[in-house]
């Protein structure tokens, strides 16, 4: 039990750190020094100390947006295992609940965006919904492949069996699943090449444009929720390279945090080397994820 509480707290405290690593990587590629590793913490604390400005158009839905989405993401974090150790809550089928909790978060973010009555935010909301449409089946199919290979139906079951032991037999499957989940990961966390987290220009914006009118505590909630979501989905990627846990909780955790940092570096490299896709090409990109996950699933059925 103490370990579970510790890992829950670690997820909540460490997740903004990954963005620091990511931004440092991008700065390195751009030849800049970059912001401090703890920049996101500073940003969040700064925002928490601010007052609030609300649009005269908005209603309680606008405030419910950040609150519900952050809560949904935090609740979803109960289900995600830590370093091959079972999650706080685990049960068969928690995969479904996890994806739908992320859906709940998206639902309210989109409604909060529409509540402002601004065309820009409407545009972002519309695009967010469109991209989620393709990302969700891809994620489901990928997890179905993992469930079939490992014979488990919960995240804790899948990721604490030492997934890395399956690689020699199911190498191609894992390779494709990793590719599919990575694409979904980039899309869900609004990274390049799907979305550009740094632009505030209306035509390229998807996620950033939806939260344009949020400020103060609400915006802090949104930033923090995004960081936790990045960590949770990243766990699915890192988890595919986990061995069976045997070296004790402390050691496992250290290795795991290292893995997550490596993931952040990889995302940074991807962001620095790729250009953002044209908006009309994004569905195509996500369909690739869907195709990869479907092929992976069919590959699990051989023999």
């Amino acid at each position: 039990m103490p370990a579970k509480i510790a890992q829950f707290i670690l997820v909540l405290t460490l997740s903004p750190f990954l963005f620091g690593v990511l931004n440092r990587t991008k700065a390195f590629f751009a030849g800049r020094k970059g912001s401090p590793l703890l920049q996101l913490y500073y940003d969040i604390f700064k925002l928490l100390r601010k007052g609030a400005v609300y649009s005269t158009t908005t209603t309680w839905v606008f405030i419910a947006g950040p609150v519900v989405s952050l809560s949904a993401v935090i609740t979803a974090s109960f289900l995600i295992p830590w370093a091959g150790h079972p999650a706080v809550i685990q049960f068969d089928g928690d995969i479904i609940l996890f994806i739908y909790l992320l859906g709940l978060a998206r639902f309210f973010t989109v409604l909060a965006a529409l509540d402002t009555g601004s065309s820009f935010e409407g545009m972002g909301a519309s695009r967010e919904m469109q991209f989620a449409l393709f990302a969700e089946p891809a994620l489901f199919l990928s997890l179905a492949s993992l469930a079939r290979v490992t014979g488990q139906m919960s995240f804790s079951g899948i990721f604490s069996t030492g997934v890395i032991n399956f690689w020699p037999v199911y190498g191609p499957v894992f390779f494709l699943v990793f590719g599919a989940v990575f694409i979904v990961f980039l899309a869900e966390n609004s990274r390049i090449p799907v979305d550009d987290p740094n632009t505030h220009l209306e035509l390229t914006m998807i996620h950033e444009v939806m939260v344009l009118d949020h400020g103060g505590v609400d915006f802090a909630y949104i930033l923090y929720g995004a960081a936790v979501k990045f960590w949770l989905l990243g766990t699915l990627l890192a988890g595919m390279f986990l061995g069976a846990s045997s070296r004790g909780w402390m050691m496992d955790s250290a290795v795991f945090i290292l893995q997550m940092s490596v993931l952040a570096v990889i995302v940074g490299v991807v962001e620095s080397t790729l250009a953002r896709l044209r908006l009309l090409k994004v569905p195509h990109f996500l369909i690739i994820a869907l195709a990869l996950s479907a092929v992976a699933f069919i590959l699990t059925m051989r023999s």
Binding site: L290, A291, V295, I298
Partner: peptide, 17 residues
């Protein structure tokens, strides 16, 4: 369009399987 081609690719693989 390309998305349809890609999905057809998956369908063809399933058929081959």
């Amino acid at each position: 369009g390309y998305p349809l081609s890609l999905l057809m690719g998956v369908v063809m693989f399933a058929m081959g399987f």
